[in-house]
Amino acid sequence: MYVLLFLAVPTLIAIGTGFFDNTGAFTLVTVAALGDPVVLTTFFNSFWLSALTAVVGAVVGAAVCYALLGARPDGPLRTTIDSLSGVLAQFGGVMLAFAFVATIGIQGMVTLYLRDTFGLDIFENGVWLYSTTGLILPYIYFQVPLMIITFMPALQALKPQWAEANATLGGSTASYWFRIAFPVLAPSFIGSLLLLFANAFSSYATAAALVSQGSQIVPLQIRAALTSETLLGRENLAGALALGMIVVMAVVMLGYSALQSRAARWQQ
C-alpha cells in the first residue's frame, strides 16, 4: 500500500500544479490566458490535427487489421507487424521527425524525386513540413500502428460462428458486415479512435524535433511557456495550458467511458 502512495503522490502533484500556479494559489488570471486568441488558435490547431490524424489512422489501421484476420496470431507475419507497430507507435518520436525530413524535407528523397522526375515542387507555396500541415504525415505514421495494436484484439474476437450463423439464417456477406460485425465492433472502433485522438493531442517529441521555432500546437506552446516565462506577458501560462490539455483529455476520457457504459448494455 505504501507503494500506491509513492505512485499516487507524484501523479497528484503533477496534476495539482497543472491546476494551480506555482505560488499555490488558484488564480483566474491563469485560466483567463486560455481565452487568448493565440492560445485558442493553438488549441484549434491541435484539435484538428489530432482529429484528422486519428480518423485517417483509425481507418487505415482498421484496414490493416482486417487484412491480418486470416493470418495466424503467432505466425511470422503477425509477430513482425506487431513489433513494427510497437516501435513506430511508442518508440518513434524524435526519430520519426528525422525520417520525414529525409523523406519530404527540402532535400528529402521524395521531394527530390518528384522535382527531378515530374518537375513537381511540393514546396511551391512555401515549406510546409515545419508547420502544422507538416505534422500530418508524421502523425499518421504513428497513429496507424497504434490503431493496429489497439484494434486488432477486437477484430480477432469476432467469432467465425457469427458469420456462419448469419449464413445459415439466410444472411448475405453484406448483412454480416452491416448487421453483425460493424455493430459489434463499433464500441472498440470508437474507443480506439478516441485513444488515437488523445495520443496525437498529447504527443510532443515528433513535433518538438521537427519544429524548432514557433508553437503551432499546444505541447509546443507549453515548451515555449516553460522556456520563457514571460510569453504573452503572463506567468504560469504553462500551468494554464496544461490545465487546458487535461480538460480536453478528461472530456475525451469521459466520452470513452460513456461509450463503454453504453456498450456495457450487451457486454459483460
Binding site: K159, I180, W266
Partner: peptide
C-alpha cells in the same frame, strides 16, 4: 437449414 453450434453463437449485440 437451421444450425445450432457447439460454442455459443448468439449475436452479442
Amino acid at each position: 437449414m437451421g444450425m445450432v453450434f457447439q460454442s455459443y453463437s448468439l449475436f452479442p449485440h
